[in-house]
Design a protein around this nucleic acid. Sequence first.
RNA 1: GGAGGUAUGGCCGAGUGGUUGAAGGCGGCAGUCUUGAAAACUGUUAGGCCGCAAGGUCUCGUGGGUUCAAAUCCUACUACCUCCGCCA
Length: 434
Amino acid sequence: MLDIKFVRENQDAVREAMENRNASWDAARFSELDESRREAIQQEEALQAERNTLSKEIGKMMGAGQKDEAEAVKERVRAINDELSGVSARREAVDGELRAMLMSVPNMPDATTPVGADENDNPEVRRWGTPRDFAAEGFEPKAHWDLGPELDIIDFDRGVKLAESRFYVLGGLGARLERALISFMLDQHVARGYKEWWVPALANAATLTGTAQLPKFEGDLFKTTGGLYLIPTAEVQLTNLHAGEVLDASQLPLKYCAFTPCFREEAGSAGRDTRGIIRVHQFSKVEMVKYATPETGFAELEAMVEDAENILQKLELPYRVISLCTGDIGFSSAKTYDLEVWLPCYNDYKEISSCSCCTDFQARRANIKYRDPDSFKGSRYLYTLNGSGLAVGRTMAAVIENYQQPDGTIRVPDALVPYMGGVTVIEPEAVVTA
RNA sequence: GGAGGUAUGGCCGAGUGGUUGAAGGCGGCAGUCUUGAAAACUGUUAGGCCGCAAGGUCUCGUGGGUUCAAAUCCUACUACCUCCGCCA
């Protein structure tokens, strides 16, 4: 949520930001609501003040035995209360509409976020590694949706049987590879100063509102009959861990990571990425979240991207970093870098991580503040950041495709061998020795 | 699932329907004393919103209700605790 005072005092900047984001913004309606809200508050509080004063007088009169005088004043207060209920109702209505309006407005893009209309305007920041030249090696690379079933490590049909379309099953070394990737990623992040967490896979509406999946994107979420939601990312839980808290500046930055399953309806993506394990209803992800001061927030974003890159580098997977433009960054984000891994089946780079600095946008929603007595009085909203480190399913697809061999087997990246029980090649005869 | 109990400020804990935003203690901060520290003593110590300000208003788990007036009464919900039952 944007700061209402900021919106009031920076109307031109907000208008421009929302244009750059392709987000609708009714500046006139905002001003109208903002003004009538403040007016209604003043009316309401004036009436409350009068009521409070008279009530105290009644108390004194009762103590002094002036029953009749007190009764007269009571009558006046009743009249005030009648008027007050109307004023309060109006204030609540205006307040609710204004709040709903602010809750549906995305974050202000940072000044360094490139201006652009859509994903085609995302500038590339850097590349790492070189995609394999399969032609030079003399064979046509297969897609993971072919290699997986052939090696009996991914089973799409049974996933559909057990659940529905866009679910899959991993078996044998496929399941082992999933577990290896999760452990490897967590170990890497923990070694780089992140605290590991284990969190619920379900969250309530308040939690989802804190990170802004709600109210606007409810359709993207799976919901239980009890009113809980399946989390679409551990960002939700890690960012809300400190909801309603005031942290001490000396604690910051906090660096958290967690593995969780992630659940997405993918309601609006019918027909996109229908093959393989790229876009599915349930996938594993290791997530990184940071709580930082405004002063260090964007430097922490750069460091977080490097932490995500570290995984790809250790796995020796070619990737590139792109900076999302204003038209493509997420709702909560002020600045986002995406990591895109090389996938031979697409003959292109495909998103595998998204790292964002959400400034104080989520902190204001989730009410997360920090104190720094040496720098300022009271408390202020801190900055939250989140990034994938990485999406496990897509990493598995990248490993399978980039490490495939002419005979249809898959070499295990060196970094994963210790996590794969000593297996160096995924093949039907592979033997796990550890 | 059944029965009972509890919910107050950073923490502990008092609170009779009426200057109670809330006693007291601990902790924190500032000071006195001291060469310094400790101890002792003194003072101070929630937040949101509206307002240029003065000031006002709201907040005692959450939401309703009663009343001129609610931390205090009623009610629903939520969380926690105890006992019983069941269970990875």
